[in-house]
């Protein structure tokens, strides 16, 4: 409870007085220091790359699905390659071309800061009789 209150106070001070960049507890930095614009774009990647870049499908068959903890330069080089067409892709060029170079660099920073967590897929259930 004390820790929660402490976090709350820090969050409120940080967000209302000095902006979301300074003064947060270390464990909050990953989420709270993200610029607004970047956090929404990065979250938009989650459909294929998982929450905060932790794809539940791991890295397989030449895919780089896990973006959490990815090297900044590696990320930027690949995305700029998709953007200018020098790097082959099935789908990523359709995303990279729609982003600015500045946004790609912000995403590189964002994903480099995230911790890989070996996230797991969600287990399915048997459909219950009372569902629509």
């Amino acid at each position: 409870m004390t820790k929660k209150l402490f976090k709350t106070v820090l969050f409120l001070i940080a967000s209302s007085v000095v902006g979301p960049n300074i003064g947060l507890a270390a464990e909050d930095v990953v989420i709270s220091t993200i610029p607004l614009h970047t956090r929404v774009i990065a979250a938009s990647c989650a459909a294929c790359h998982g929450t905060l870049g932790n794809a539940v499908t791991g890295n397989t068959i030449e895919r780089n699905a896990v973006l959490a903890g990815k090297d900044r330069t590696d990320f930027t080089t690949k995305m700029l390659g998709f953007k200018d067409g020098s790097r082959r892709s099935t789908v990523m060029h359709h995303h990279a071309r729609g982003l600015t170079e500045a946004e790609i660099k912000q995403l590189a920073d964002f994903f480099a800061q995230q911790k890989p967590t070996n996230a797991n897929p969600i287990a399915p259930q048997v459909l219950k009789a009372n569902h629509d």
Binding site: A47, P121, I122
Partner: peptide, 15 residues
């Protein structure tokens, strides 16, 4: 990729 999309969006939404 389509199945990977499904697995990841399900996990993003529901976990």
């Amino acid at each position: 990729f389509a199945h990977a999309w499904a697995q990841n969006i399900w996990a993003d939404v529901l976990t």
